[in-house]
């Protein structure tokens, strides 16, 4: 899967969770700005794990302190790419 595919798949998952069109998701959007709460985030991360067959380190108790940066869509995409490279190596 190339970089563009990863990005589109992640955006698709986030759009699904936010109940928006993928075109409405900006790379600098935050989960909060898209109306995704902590449980929505947990569900999105599960969908990402399933889509890419990776394991994402994320604890809902300390979302800012987790190794996986969920602050913006761009950071999520970068994080997923890194995990794919690391876990599929």
């Amino acid at each position: 899967m190339n970089t563009q595919d990863v990005k589109q798949t992640v955006i698709g998952i986030i759009a699904d969770q936010a109940m928006l069109e993928p075109g409405d998701i900006a790379m600098d959007s935050t989960p909060e700005s898209l109306g995704i709460d902590s449980m929505g985030l947990v569900e999105a991360i599960f969908a990402i794990e399933e889509a890419f067959d990776i394991s994402v380190p994320f604890n809902a108790n300390e979302p800012q302190g987790s190794e996986f940066d969920i602050s913006t869509v761009a950071h999520i995409v970068t994080g997923v790419e890194a995990l794919i490279a690391e876990q599929r190596a």
């Binding site: 947990v42 991360i45 994320f58 604890n59 809902a60 108790n61």
Partner: peptide, 15 residues
């Protein structure tokens, strides 16, 4: 047991 903890693990609230 495996299934019991696995289910809780999914919620991402466990230490």
């Amino acid at each position: 047991c495996f299934g019991g903890v696995k289910a809780w693990e999914g919620l991402r609230v466990m230490s």
